[in-house]
Amino acid sequence: MARFEVPEVDYTRYSNRQLAAIPLVVLTAALLVIGGAYATTGAPVDPGLDFTGGTELRVAVDAPSDAQARERIDEAFAATPDSVQQVGGGDVYVITFESTEAEPGQLEAQAEEAGFTIRSIDSVSASFGSDTQRLALLGVGVAFAGMAALVFALFRTFVPSVAVVVSAFSDIVIPVALMNLLGIELTLGTVAALLMLIGYSVDSDILLNNSVLRRSGDFYESTYRAMRTGVTMTVTSLAAMAVMAVVAGVYGIGLLASIGTILVFGLAADLMNTYLLNVSLLRWYKFEGVAR
């Protein structure tokens, strides 16, 4: 069986500036991507059907080939679908209409007329979608503020708490930027994943801070101890979420696929942020900040 060992990093070879540079550059780039998206589209990330309103149909199409099935789908509907996605190489297609102009009742009738078997229909009205968007933003904001308050209450020291909160912030911002770059839309599933990240990603930061601040022993020894556990944790979750993202994507289960994808991005970002950004801030605090 393959062995999985957490390598020991020799942090003494790098200055705090060097360590923090990489995550800070990535964070800045991510913020720029999000800011650019906001400036051009008015939204930090492309909102999906849950927030804009629209209709998603899942239909079984009886056609000899994928191309012919797509042709039949194009012919069947009066409105032009925003996306047509094949599910798991079978005869089932997920068809998305992102405007509420195409009324779900009409789409249903058109699909039935074309002889498709309707597997599911989901429709969200535009006004309901914009309410949901406001609620989702509020939810993420409240969750983040609650987490930050809790972290300050747990450590009761400024710099280490800020280190955790900044890492967590970056853990959320990087996946959102990646969503922009990869064209992944914001759905309820991705919002859930972002909230999940707030909870998940601080685990390894708390572990690291606890090990360095509350335990005896030399800084590098404590860091390595926390890192061995923390990396194992994150890699385990990351592997599980990657499997979930891939398999759910093949089966066309959007909710699970988007939760999986965002968590993979976020946990990968967390590895970088915890062991470069958080470590450098902690080291500065331990060797210079306390002395002041």
Partner: peptide, 20 residues
């Protein structure tokens, strides 16, 4: 501590009626 942060982070979703 980790459990508390997860609960804090997820509780808006449990109370907001964000659909499913």
């Amino acid at each position: 501590a980790a459990a508390a942060t997860t609960i804090v982070a997820m509780s808006p979703l449990a109370f907001l009626s964000l659909g499913d």
